[in-house]
Design a protein around this nucleic acid. Structure first.
Lengths: 201, 201
DNA sequence: CAGTTGTGATACGGGATGTATCGTATCACA
DNA sequence: TGTGATACGATACATCCCGTATCACAACTG
């Protein structure tokens, strides 16, 4: 699923969609969510901020959550990857810190809004899973399987369980607000979770 | 915070609030959320289902999320406690299974709705933290500290980190839908997380 | 009895949604 | 160059829900 957008009516006949509108709309949506929150976001405000007709929004997206979803993915797509050099286990810790840092900032505001809206909108929930959650889980699972092959992780480890143990607590704190998403917290989760997975030879 | 209700104007003068209305409203709200979802829930529908005037709802609760919050707490308050007998570590596993089972059913629908709404409503987020999350965290932390004293858990364990490692994955699956909240899943999380906390003597 | 508040019904204004329509703009194709 | 099809911005519209206000009546205290 490349985006939440509706398809144009036809491909090679008629006036084509203006490509600049996407950028303007997504930037406007992100700006408004970050300044005023998702709760007060309206299609009208997005259209005004982007300098675009409101009808154009409804022509391209089914609702505001879809717009924010596209805006979010456009922002964070290149981030939170696993660096390919350095110590194997420390790379995981650093990746978790990178993610926690992103969640402490503007990305955290956006993903909280999307997670909340997804609980009431099955389409958005599927989009969040397909475009955000699953790609990252696949990358992590690949990295972990490679670590199992190379002997850094126990050969009988369950990559999915490890993903959940490492990353679910970060989402949990983001949503529950039971404490700060600090490096110290990430380290505590990492260290404890890893005790069951590290291969101690 | 005993409930999300607004206080009556006065205590001993004037007509007292009808006590039956609470039950009817909370039952109606729960029924509607479970049948049609939280997204389409309206104050009007709750009032109609409960056979109550809409004004009465606004007199007692600030918004529909507060009503669902009260309905949820009224349903699940007595559940998901730690049984006091049996093997210490197995008791934790069983408690996690009980919670997962509740989340697989109607309670899961309700708490998903509340978690979603809480992302847009700071008051509701605080209520969810104070009335649901924190009481359970306190109970768990107490149980874990007792286990540290009695030698079942490592004396240098961090109860908060253990809580997050054990329970955050359950919330994660509930919301993300990355897999079933089965007993097998609970066991995988429990077994892996416990490797870093169990006292192996 | 008087005073005070809860209850149900109804009306109201405000705001957001999603659709429809209009004139204009931009493209492909003949 | 012109024709057909679609996108764009603007506007109007019906609909829905919210939260408040108001009313007559009910229920309680003293």
């Amino acid at each position: 699923m490349l985006s939440q957008q509706k398809q144009p009516k036809a491909l090679n006949i008629g006036r084509p969609r203006s490509p600049k509108i996407d950028r303007k709309v997504l930037a406007a949506a992100a700006k408004l969510v970050l300044s005023d929150g998702f709760g007060t976001l309206t299609m009208d405000a997005i259209a005004a901020e982007a300098g675009v007709g409101r009808m154009t929004l409804y022509r391209r997206w089914p609702n505001k959550a879809a717009i924010v979803m596209d805006a979010f993915v456009a922002r964070v797509d290149p981030n939170t990857l696993f660096p390919s050099d350095g110590d194997y286990l420390e790379t995981i810790r650093l990746q978790m810190r990178t993610m926690a840092k992103a969640f402490r900032g503007e990305d955290g505001v956006l993903i909280r809004a999307l997670l909340g809206a997804a609980q009431l909108d099955p389409d958005l929930a599927a989009a969040l899973r397909n475009r955000w959650t699953m790609p990252r889980r696949k990358m992590a699972a690949e990295y972990f399987r490679e670590g199992m092959r190379q002997g850094y992780l126990r050969p009988d480890a369950d990559p999915d369980a490890l993903i959940d143990l490492l990353y679910a607590p970060i989402y949990y704190r983001l949503q529950m607000g039971t404490g700060p998403l600090s490096n110290a917290y990430v380290d505590a989760i990492f260290d404890h979770a890893m005790k069951g997975f590290r291969n101690d030879h």
